[in-house]
Design a binder for these strands. Structure first.
Lengths: 253, 253
DNA sequence: ACAAAAGTGTTTTCTATACACCCATGG
DNA sequence: CCATGGGTGTATAGAAAACACTTTTGT
């Protein structure tokens, strides 16, 4: 179980010393692939236990910058859309005994046993652009479908629930574009909305509303390769889309 | 200018030692009185400079509990509706030199000069129930109308702006009831919505929508004392109102 | 030719808005 | 009796929802 090498732990403690105590960042990285919402998870070294990517804020670093830094390291992305969505500030957030047992990490007598307040951020990223990279404490970093999540470490299942609820509630203001590639088809966009909202939408009404909103530009290309009618490819209008999002106009309630 | 007595500073440092460093709480307490939104502000000892109430989180205390504790001390209220709305996590949030000059507080060489990340909470309270009480560092605690705010210390004008924007955006989910007394008239409720939204509403449509939503119970009493027609008094339906708020149904967009 | 997804218009229902008059009260 | 805010209904416009068939494509 405990095959953390001593130097890793050492490095980690040093890193913690540079950072603000009692405070951490947890990131829910949302991607969309094959009609499903996915999140990026890390598998802890030598275990079969998964958790969200996270880290600490350096003493002179802004919280947003810390989240960007953490996610750059996990995803390889330079740019990403980030949104803080909640502060997890309870004094007791999860069963510590149980967690330590599951990860076999010698934390109980170190700085690590301090309670931490966690700043919750979610990111919207383009699935195909991400190259998941584990960190020092993990030996795998992978996408998991939102509806097949395992029992995560800490309170991370709860954090994901809150992140998703936040994304849903703020959907009219969130630039969903980051979850899709440069060009995409109308049904793909519809499926994205359906997945986030957790219900189906009428295709005709969806087309109408999206086209009326003016957020899309239709390209001359079509997606071929499927055995059926080739759909047009669209891209987001770089001027109109941000304006519509800022105003929060684009609701499918 | 600097008439902080040494024992106060001493006490304050001890208090800070019990708390989490680099992290603070700032609270925007919203009240509604005479047709205006108001916020509770503190005047720093020996100065004419105002700021938001705030404080620190004890090492084993939940963030929410800290906010409740801080606001109990300022308002005398046991119960209050609190909502975290933003993390102010920039490395440089305001002009420190300027701030220290304005408050004449000997902070530059103490723990106090650390950058702080601030958790922003807003509270919705019933104006008349509050008995504003200054804290150790201030010699006044008072309501200020939102549209006549002075130039506040730190980044507190900005924090209030963000709080108000958050309240507006999340209005359908926020229990506005806390801003009103037990019973109130329909025009009072309308004025509250108008004030928060920053625009006027049509009285007839407002009546219709509110009545259709079923959130109110009309009492048999009327408010007398005005020189005009006596309006009925209403109270929030203790069952229906929370349900409507949870669902976020009640928009005046 | 067929299976399956893409693409499109019209009708209906509901919701939001605009709008004007009488009523009640205290002074 | 008058000044002022309280209280109400209806008509219209716009938005959302329901609904079905034709087109396209690879196999």
């Amino acid at each position: 179980m405990k095959n953390f090498d001593q130097t890793v732990i050492q490095y980690f403690r040093q890193e913690a010393e540079l950072s603000i105590h009692y405070l951490s960042i947890d990131c829910v990285v949302f991607g969309f692939h094959e009609g499903r919402m996915r999140v990026l998870l890390l598998r802890w070294k030598g275990t079969n236990e998964w958790s969200l990517p996270g880290g600490f804020i350096r003493k002179t670093e802004s919280a947003d910058a810390a989240a960007v830094r953490i996610l750059r390291e996990r995803t390889g992305l330079q740019q990403l859309f980030l949104q803080q969505f909640h502060i997890f500030g309870d004094a007791i957030r999860y069963d510590e005994e149980d967690t330590w047992r599951r990860i076999g990490f010698p934390v109980d007598r170190s700085k690590w046993s301090e309670r931490t307040i966690s700043l919750g951020y979610y990111a919207l990223v383009e699935y195909a652009e991400v190259t998941p990279r584990p960190d020092l404490l993990s030996d795998a970093c992978d996408w998991w479908s939102l509806d097949e999540l395992p029992n995560l470490l800490f309170d991370h299942n709860h954090i994901i629930d809150v992140a998703l609820a936040g994304l849903r509630r703020q959907l009219p203001y969130q630039p969903i574009s980051h979850l899709l590639p440069e060009t995409f088809t109308m049904p793909e966009l519809q499926r994205l909305y359906e997945t986030i909202l957790g219900r189906t939408l009428d295709a005709r009404n969806f087309y109408k509303k999206v086209q009326a909103s003016g957020i899309l530009q239709r390209t001359d290309e079509r997606r071929t390769g499927t055995p059926y009618k080739s759909p047009y490819l669209y891209r987001f209008d770089p001027v109109a889309y941000p304006a519509v999002i800022r105003g929060g106009h684009l609701s499918f309630l």
